[in-house]
Design a protein around this nucleic acid. Sequence first.
DNA 1: AACAAATTGGGGTATATACCCGCGTCATGG
DNA 2: CCATGACGCGGGTATATACCCCAATTTGTT
Lengths: 132, 132
Amino acid sequence: MDSQCYCDLLRTAARKTTAIYDRHLAEVGLTLAQYKLLKKINCVGKLSISELAVACDLDRSTMGRNVQVLERHALVEETSCGDGRRCMVKLTELGRQRFAAALPLWQAAQSEIEATLNPDQITAITALSSAL
Amino acid sequence: MDSQCYCDLLRTAARKTTAIYDRHLAEVGLTLAQYKLLKKINCVGKLSISELAVACDLDRSTMGRNVQVLERHALVEETSCGDGRRCMVKLTELGRQRFAAALPLWQAAQSEIEATLNPDQITAITALSSAL
DNA sequence: AACAAATTGGGGTATATACCCGCGTCATGG
DNA sequence: CCATGACGCGGGTATATACCCCAATTTGTT
């Protein structure tokens, strides 16, 4: 009865679900955000910071800092391209291994959510991204 | 087609809506999170950090830091109570004024969301908090 | 009353996020 | 071929968030 604020409801839901995914992924030392970024880079191969930011719909500086975290963990590395301003980000071998190890853990979290929410909610959540 | 990850969908939705609310509330220099905290304190009167954390379903240390932000902005102040460990947080006069000024801005953001999402999604979002 | 247990809050560390600014680099128009 | 403008990214600052640990305090138990 307290918060009919849609933003607060979504923020709370995001916090709660993030905690669930993070708990699963902690086994390989990843957060959900890191897993998602690894997945993105793994799918596309090489991308610049700006391209990653656009792809993930994040601020460019945010993406830069998120990539730095993965670099510190030696999960991604930067390779130069022709353009001296940009550098391409790609997975390291460790990054690929870590991503592979994380996949079943992510799936377990995904299943946990599916078991918790009812199908209508799943559908509504899925439609959110296109609506906003 | 990319991210069927429920967590990512919710996090993205939370980011997007937060940006909308923050844009409206920027007129009085508040963020959505700050507005929500002011509202909570305003409703209940006086609460300790721990009580606020429970009420908002946040980590205690997170709440402590969020309260510090409001203190820096002179929107809340702490008063001692019998218990030497705790101190009660309450709104300052400025805090009350700021909250009153923010209310219509929050409502505008709320209306913007209602105009953007369809009723089914609104219903599903509202039900999320009890499900998770 | 004395000691153990629980509570409270602060601080350290880490991540995620966004905005602004400036520096270096590229590309394009004279 | 150079100047200007566009682009890419790092850094500074601020907020939001959570985990851990610790000190002070209160509470509960014997």
